[in-house]
Nucleic acid binder design. Sequence first.
DNA 1: CAGTCATTTCGTATTTTTACGAAATACGTT
DNA 2: AACGTATTTCGTAAAAATACGAAATGACTG
Lengths: 98, 98
Amino acid sequence: MSTDVLTDRQKKIARYAKAMAHPVRMYILELLSEQSCCYSGDLAEDLPIARSTLSQHLSELKAAGLIQGEIKPPKIKYCINRENFEEARALMRDFYKL
Amino acid sequence: MSTDVLTDRQKKIARYAKAMAHPVRMYILELLSEQSCCYSGDLAEDLPIARSTLSQHLSELKAAGLIQGEIKPPKIKYCINRENFEEARALMRDFYKL
DNA sequence: CAGTCATTTCGTATTTTTACGAAATACGTT
DNA sequence: AACGTATTTCGTAAAAATACGAAATGACTG
């Protein structure tokens, strides 16, 4: 099918890296990987950005598969998506030959 | 000094991740980390993009500090910037708790 | 069922990224 | 000094990322 020189692996790492490519998103990822879960509101209180902007960053992380949201009315609980986080980790580990 | 909630570490990882956030740049990084050096022309032959576009990607990697160029007339030899590559690796390792 | 809370979606503006071809640069060769 | 080679810079266009406030959503509460 595809005679693309770019491998799926390279595309996957690039995709995960894109999700990590903003300080606010790294802040969220670090927080979640430490304490596993949090609410959008908790983040909004700490971060110097509008709630709507934060929501966009959460969407980006969700689209990349690194986090997932669970509705706990009236809040939404965000957690690391372990499966994909592990994949990202494995890809990074291999790339950096760790 | 800075009462910024975002740490320098988070900003640094985000910066390196941004450089990695494109399949073409991952292709270049993988090639260089395997064989240490190559010329822009070698890459241009393999990749399905214009030479000027490739040059922009090389600039982005250079700006992030992950590679460096050495003039070997009439070519330019690109290599991994070991020091910064190591830093990126260490940051990724810590983040992913490897 | 009107009100409240937490969060997202929408509309929009600005900036950045990605891409190309044409022109410029740098350097060695004839 | 003109020429060829390798690569970059410039000009430009289109797409994506980032940001905000206002409005909408979904779910519980009085």
